[in-house]
Nucleic acid binder design. Structure first.
Lengths: 224, 224
DNA sequence: CACTCATTCAAACGTATGTTTGAAACGGAC
DNA sequence: GTCCGTTTCAAACATACGTTTGAATGAGTG
């Protein structure tokens, strides 16, 4: 069995060739076929490695999938953090606008791939998969990839919305998350089924308009 | 194989005993374990019927699930329609407010069961399941259960929001749907994992506040 | 009773799955 | 060259699954 941490040895090579090839193929295949439809046989065949490699390197299929998901999330959240950096710099000492914050949260999710389909649609699908079938171990393993961004967003939105209570801000941020989760699930459907190209700019404008209004809503409804 | 429609015979007994017992058990089991985790062996064992009964009565597992989902959706949408009737009656000749329309859309989804958990959480899970794994035949079979309500909501929201274009109204209604879908997925999690009771009134107030602001948003952002 | 249809049943089918095993191949250390 | 831990490999394992089959049952009809 050996430790999860590879033996000291040549630590420079970030990962064994097989291990990184497996996780790369897993990400791509999950992207195109959906997590439920990918077997470890599919992955190992495509990656040109032995069937047993996945259990050897990751322990189980489930943990491989969790690592693939964590990788996507990290990529997305790194972009978001960078956009928040820019927004904060641009705002000088003041807090960035709700719209700027929303853009930092939303835009990275709209990136398109070479087919002009949503690049992270598979990430949304994997998330759905874990939401539907919650596994405490995996949730725990994923949490650190979400927390820093969430804390920062909470702080920034609270600053931009001083009239909204902190718990409300958190709750409303949850709705933005919901919208984006759903959005990506369906961006995938729309793209694959209809061959429609996605109009990122228009989507972004609509999403920011809807969400910023929601974030700013007066607590007791009746805005007009 | 015989037709799907049972032979004429005693049409008074709405469904054969086995058939209705199967669909009832299926609904309940999907509710508690999640659609992915329920096998036809689980269902038939629990219902006390033969393993082959599902394929005999429904043709396949997938079609049984679709029927169970359609049943839930019909129940929900009937309530929504009734609430819309009331809202329209109350508004007299004028169009009901955005808030009243949202309540009709949202409240039926918040009904709790005897454990004060969300009663339709399983419906959301089943929906998620079909979204993740779209099957044209099943989607087609589900459509009629959604369309009448959707058309009516579109018409009413457009009347209540004359300054928002029809395609925008439709798009925004989609976001409300997204929020509710996600909301129910997580209401289930919260309820089961934490044993927390759900505060329907508070949830409704928050949801309506967020969504009504979003529905009313000025198209080009920057509300203040 | 005899006929017929829908329904139920136990059993088997065929297959796809994630995982384990035990031996072989590799590669650096001494 | 030999040892030793790591990695790869082909093969088997152990089920779990949805579905099919063909005979048995049962009720309604003539």
């Amino acid at each position: 069995m050996s430790d999860n941490t590879k033996a000291a040895a040549s630590a420079t090579a970030a990962e064994s060739d097989t291990k990184s090839r497996i996780i790369g193929v897993a990400e791509r295949m999950i992207a195109t076929k959906g997590a439920e439809q990918v077997s470890i046989r599919d992955i190992t065949r495509e990656a040109g490695v032995n069937l047993a490699a996945i259990n050897y390197h990751f322990g189980s299929k489930e943990r491989l999938f969790a690592e693939a998901l964590a990788r996507s999330i990290t990529a997305i959240n790194t972009t978001r953090m960078a956009m928040l950096d820019k927004a904060e710099a641009k705002a000088g000492g003041r807090s960035p606008s709700v719209e700027a914050l929303l853009e930092a949260f939303i835009l990275p999710l709209l990136h398109t791939d070479e087919n002009e389909c949503n690049r992270y649609a598979h990430t949304a699908k994997m998330l759905s998969r874990f939401f539907l079938n919650p596994d405490e171990e995996i949730m725990h393993m994923l949490r650190p990839h979400f927390m820093p961004l969430k804390e920062r967003l909470l702080r920034l939105f609270s600053a931009a919305l001083p009239e909204v209570g902190k718990t409300d801000v958190e709750w409303r941020l949850g709705q933005v998350f919901a919208i984006m989760h759903h959005h990506m699930l369906f961006a995938d459907l729309r793209c694959k089924d209809l061959g429609k190209k996605l109009n990122v700019k228009k989507e972004l404008r609509r999403l920011v308009a809807f969400c910023s209004a929601g974030m700013r809503a007066t607590p007791d409804g009746e805005a007009h």
